[in-house]
């Protein structure tokens, strides 16, 4: 059945694509099989992340950029969009409102927009956003735009998923130190100062330029570990002034995306980023499997008795953990 669904996704059937995204998002068993069937067909899309504080205009920017690639660019490209909004930690519900800003894209078969709730994941994405991006990639979208939860200073998961990270800032959100201390600046491949028609935009752009200048003194900076300089030729993130509501500066972002993709491919950083992404995906999958097995086995292994003994100070948590792990490993061996 899922093989069938995979076929239909590959043929670009939109209802099948929507179902596939749900299966993957919900951790359904069919979703796993589906991802496996689709995987050989992934790796063609340019994955672009958009992050930045709430209210800087990420959705509007994403919508305008998608529109540019569809209708204005010299050669049109198809765009899949994943828009992540936060799940309430109290009710488990979510209000997903990014589509409000994307109504311009309605009716275009070269665009597919999907809203995702973060469902308890931290870091600005949902746990299955990477898998959803793979589905859109397999479905043949040239570009996959991933808009994170309105991120502050530490939500940097997107750097592991995307080939290119666009960090969006806007004037008037606090003094310039606020912008500089944000960890998200360090993951930027392209910096956008949106709402450039507002006072303070020029100054914010200059501040960012200066900060970048100090940060990348031609290859010898303290930032050799940063994704942007993963090869010997450093990529210096451009700072672009944009007024997304007017479409001003949008072609420049498109141009920078193109240049960045070319840079990544030329320097081998494209491969390196993918390797890093798959490494963390692998790790997460293994941990998740361990975690699930642990949850089913813990009770049988006498967790509550061990807890009692810890409470009485008869055994330390470290020793208790060792005991449990040894038992789980021996499970493994008798099975294998």
């Amino acid at each position: 059945m899922s093989r069938d669904l995979a076929q239909r996704v590959l043929q670009g059937e939109r209802r099948a694509l929507a179902r596939a995204l749900s299966l993957v998002e919900n951790d359904a068993p069919e979703g796993e099989a589906l991802l496996e069937a689709l995987f050989p067909h992934t790796g063609r899309a340019h994955l672009v992340g958009f992050t930045g504080p709430p209210g800087v205009g990420k959705s509007t920017l994403v919508a305008r950029l998608a529109r540019y690639f569809r209708r204005e660019a010299p050669s049109p490209r198809t765009v899949g969009i994943l828009a992540v909004d936060p799940t309430s930690p109290f009710t488990g519900g979510a209000l997903l409102g990014d589509r409000i800003r994307m109504r311009d894209l309605a009716g275009d078969p070269g665009v597919f927009i999907r809203s995702m709730a973060s469902r308890g994941a931290v870091g600005g994405l949902a746990r299955n956003t990477a898998a959803a991006a793979q589905v859109l990639d397999a479905a043949g979208f040239d570009l996959v735009f991933i808009e994170t939860v309105g991120a502050g200073q530490a939500e940097v998961e997107i750097a592991r998923l995307a080939h290119t990270v666009v960090v969006v800032q806007a004037p008037g959100l606090g003094d310039e130190i606020q912008a500089l201390k944000a960890g998200i600046l360090e993951i930027a491949d392209i910096l956008v100062v949106n709402k450039a028609d507002r006072p303070g935009a020029q100054q914010l752009a200059r501040t960012l330029e200066n900060w970048l200048g100090r940060r990348t003194p031609k290859g010898e900076g303290p930032d050799d570990a940063s994704p942007a300089s993963a090869s010997n030729t450093p990529w210096i993130p451009p700072v672009l002034l944009v007024t997304a509501t007017q479409g001003e500066g949008i072609p420049q972002i498109a141009q920078s995306l193109k240049e960045h993709a070319a840079h990544l491919k030329r320097t081998g950083a494209w491969q390196e980023r993918e390797r890093r992404r798959f490494e963390s995906e692998l790790r997460e999958r293994v941990l998740l499997t361990f975690w699930r097995r642990w949850e089913t086995r813990a009770k049988q292994l006498g967790l509550s008795q061990l807890l009692e003994r810890i409470l009485k100070r008869e055994i330390s948590p470290q020793r208790a953990a060792e005991t449990l792990l040894r038992q789980m490993w021996s499970d493994q061996e008798t099975k294998g």
Partner: peptide, 21 residues
Amino acid sequence: RALRDAGMEVIYTGIRQTPEM
């Protein structure tokens, strides 16, 4: 908001939507 508070995921599209949209 009420549906969100009841634990549902609500996609809000706003005003002036055509049937196609």
